[in-house]
Design a protein around this nucleic acid. Sequence first.
DNA 1: ATATACTCTAGTAATTCTATCGGATAACTT
DNA 2: AAGTTATCCGATAGAATTACTAGAGTATAT
Lengths: 153, 153
Amino acid sequence: MLTRKAKYALKAMLVLARKGTDDPVFISELAKASGVPKKFLELILLELRNAGLLESKRGKAGGYLLGLPAQDIMVGQVIRAVDGPMAPVPCLSKTAYRRCDDCEHEGECGVRLALREAYQASLAILERTSLEDTLEMMAESHDTVAAMPMYNI
Amino acid sequence: MLTRKAKYALKAMLVLARKGTDDPVFISELAKASGVPKKFLELILLELRNAGLLESKRGKAGGYLLGLPAQDIMVGQVIRAVDGPMAPVPCLSKTAYRRCDDCEHEGECGVRLALREAYQASLAILERTSLEDTLEMMAESHDTVAAMPMYNI
DNA sequence: ATATACTCTAGTAATTCTATCGGATAACTT
DNA sequence: AAGTTATCCGATAGAATTACTAGAGTATAT
């Protein structure tokens, strides 16, 4: 399960991506728009900024804005920035590889092999789905709903 | 990240699958073979049994054995049995669907759409990869290692 | 009977998650 | 220069989850 933190991060990033402006947005505004507790969001935005996904401006008229174009920020990057590595076992992680302390022959580790393909498939998609792509899916799904016949007039 | 519990569950199930016998195996034996703390394993095996993936025999000469043929037990089932639903957000879960309390229009929820494909891809693989398949992969990877030229004679 | 092995309910220490507090720092305004 | 506004950041705290462990109970083979 995704942590609340990662969920909040995605929400906030999507709000910023949809806004599409070059003017920074206040945390308070983002908090309201995304429904995330302001103080918690502060923390999250800071982490996203330290990961290079956001830029910030301090002082009056400060706030946050995307650090890259929305099509260059991948869903996987956002999750990884706040939740850490996504791999089901450390020995499958690309960004934070670590040997499992409990298995001696990694090459033949059943758990690793059982999860490997599933993880790779999921990762491939998370690493090529951008915020922009997500916005498009949102627009489409909205159209779909709107295009559905209204029987209950 | 997979919990240790799920990892232990997979390990134990794989030991049983490899054994391939119809005689029950002691928890203590299983604990030694899989490197899982015995008391903890007890708990895990019980859950796997309650999920129908294992059968048990009580009393002297008791123990555990697979409840189904190894090709009919899927990696995803094992994980779900001990860790609960695998979906990144409850509104994507097939087995434990729940509306997210924080998003009102589910159809247009960005988080849901951002994760949907990746989750489906991963799930599809976890639900069609059996213990038997995993054993085969283990054997293959073992062969591969063994077949590698030995330069350091 | 009795020894053996699973069953099952609690409990617990450690860690992680989900925030919140409060003050420091930066920048804009007047 | 002073005041206002907003981010920065370290510390903290309660709740939930994880990873076990204890111990009493129950079934079964011999």
